[in-house]
């Protein structure tokens, strides 16, 4: 069953048509890849579906509900988390605080909960901190738990950004190039974790440039160019399509084997 349905989304920035009637379906419990040259509209598509931009036309359905043009904080509450391509962390806050910010339905984050339900939020805070710590162990960041996020290296920031998305325990995660800037061993580890989560029923929509990663981990791939979906299918089919080579890879046919 399709958990996310994007139906003929269009988006213009001024006179520039960034998305033209983009339609796609993401199956529940799948890892769906999104590839395409730089500027083809992949990130804009994610941002529009998530509500950062209002689409000029088309609709988005999540778990059967229409979420078109909902603001991001409401999309999040529906069960989608978003990991930015360039990590957007709270740099002066600790690594732990960054993760705790991502928790859903934390009673202590509301003003009345904070003031009148002290015991309840204290307990919840401890449970959430425990889960945050487990996520940090998974991402090899547990040593840095009380460091400020601004002290992390580029790759660690990227990991923390993914950690934030995991912390939300959403039904679906949008990942914008999760493996960019991370060493190969760790990026494999991230994807293996995604597979584990997938088995538990989580769904992923991933912008990814690394073809070998897509081949190994993705269930389905959409390829975009100039704001349109050009190809879709199993990773193998898409990557072996001549059109894919012409638009995306150019002449370097050995990328897949390398």
């Amino acid at each position: 069953m399709a958990i996310l349905v994007v139906d003929k989304i269009t988006k213009r920035f001024g006179g520039f048509q960034v998305l033209q009637d983009v339609s796609l379906k993401v199956e529940e419990g799948s890892i769906t890849g999104l590839v395409g040259p730089n500027g083809s509209g992949k990130s804009t598509l994610l941002s529009t579906v998530f509500g950062f931009y209002k689409p000029d036309g088309g609709d988005v359905y999540f778990k059967g509900d229409k979420i078109t043009a909902l603001p991001p904080h409401d999309v999040y509450k529906k069960g989608i988390a978003f990991a930015f391509q360039i990590p957007r962390l709270f740099f002066k806050l600790t690594v732990l605080d960054n993760l705790l910010m991502a928790a859903r339905d934390h009673v202590g984050t509301t003003l009345d909960g904070t003031l009148f339900l002290r015991k309840k939020w204290k307990n919840q805070e401890l449970e959430l901190a425990r889960r945050a710590f487990e996520i940090l162990e998974l991402l090899d960041l547990s040593k840095l738990v009380s460091h400020k996020a601004g002290e992390l290296s580029g790759g660690q920031r990227k990991l923390l950004e993914i950690g934030k998305a995991l912390m939300a325990s959403p039904d679906m995660i949008f990942l914008d190039e999760p493996a960019a800037g991370i060493n190969p061993v760790l990026s494999r580890k991230i994807y293996q974790n995604l597979i584990e989560l997938k088995k538990k029923g989580m769904t992923f929509l991933v912008v990814e440039h690394k073809l070998e990663v897509l081949l190994e981990f993705a269930d389905y791939v959409y390829m975009m160019d100039s704001g349109k979906i050009l190809l879709s299918g199993k990773p193998k089919e898409v990557i072996n399509d001549p059109l894919f080579y012409n638009v995306y890879v150019g002449e370097a046919k050995d990328v897949v084997s390398g």
Partner: peptide, 25 residues
């Protein structure tokens, strides 16, 4: 107030309010 999860949200808004929005607040 500032040493609660609520205070954490306030600080996060100062740091990056778009990111806060992406985290459901």
């Amino acid at each position: 107030l500032t040493n609660t999860p609520y205070g954490r949200v306030l600080l996060s808004i100062r740091e990056d309010d778009t990111a806060v929005q992406a985290l459901g607040k």
